[in-house]
Amino acid sequence: MKIENAFSFKRLILTTVFLLLVLGVAVLIGLSVGSSAGNPTAAFEAIFSPDPSNEVLRTIIWRIRLPRVLLAILVGAALSCGGLVFQALMRNPLAEPYILGISGGSAIGAIVGILMGFSRFPGVGITAFAGSMATLGLILVMSSGRTILKKDALLLSGVMINAFCSAIIMFLLSITQDQRLHNIMFWLMGDLSIADLGQTGTLAVLLLPCVVLLFMLSHAMNLLLMGKEMAKSMGVNITTVTFTMLIVTTFMVSATVSQSGLLGFVGLVIPHLLRMLLGPDHRILLPSCVLGGGAYMVICDMLARTLPSQGEMPVGVITALIGAPLFIYLLKRSAS
């Protein structure tokens, strides 16, 4: 009998190529569908043919839609990786940056930054990181020691941290009077419309080394699933690995939150979907989460732009509408 093993270079390359294709298709759809100017076919032609009559549409596509699509890829990739890493680290299928309250913490930090008049980047990014590190610390203290593996304890502490964060956010909003209020509200619900190429590029440069680092730790994540003791006995330096992963993912989450606001459940939907399709090996799952999460977010953003609404729907509405029912389903399944 052959030893079954889900991992091989060939499989890694095949899944990567396949998901790259998926992402490519999602990007094409994201670029050609939009609220303004023309039907998708016309947009499609405008992308591929340099016909001068399409000038307006081309400007819209390259100047407005492209930065937005790129930002969506980065945000989706970062949040999916965040979910995957937290799920491995806490050995809890329901762990996710938004549910744990880490996104909420970075939102507080970001709002404080906005109110203090910092620029979006790097000022707000730094305050967002500080906020998320504070909530991460709180989660680790609350669920420290033996209880860290307990699903309910972790979720309850996350719910409470989220409630606390919402209260602080509401407080901050109630003392804000001027025009910034609307901006903050809209951003809070998850919004990709402010994307510009420069900021998106900076974000990409920040996220890339994080993803590479996490990929290097992906085999350690496999071993961690066996429990801390077993992982240790197979040579995983638990303390270093855990701290690296926590800090790197928290950094990724806060960097994206400061750009795109609160987008819930992305880190739940994508890792679970990919795990069902591709199996449990993190060496395959991590790159897949980057590509699949990116594609998912592009599609969610496309839906937010095109579904009928007054003005524009925040993309956070879409991700929550898809993610929250899935969360309840997973909770029910893991309870039985």
């Binding site: 030893i3 290097m216 699933l225 066996m226 429990g227 003791e229 449990p280």
Partner: peptide
């Protein structure tokens, strides 16, 4: 080391678990 309480919930196959024993002799990606 073979602990007393062995992991119950573990999504990998038996073959993969036994292969994981090779990790200390492999590179970082196993």
């Amino acid at each position: 080391y073979v602990p007393q309480n062995l992991p119950l919930e573990f999504p990998f196959t038996v073959g993969e678990v036994v292969l994981m024993g090779r990790s200390p002799h492999q590179g970082i990606l196993g």
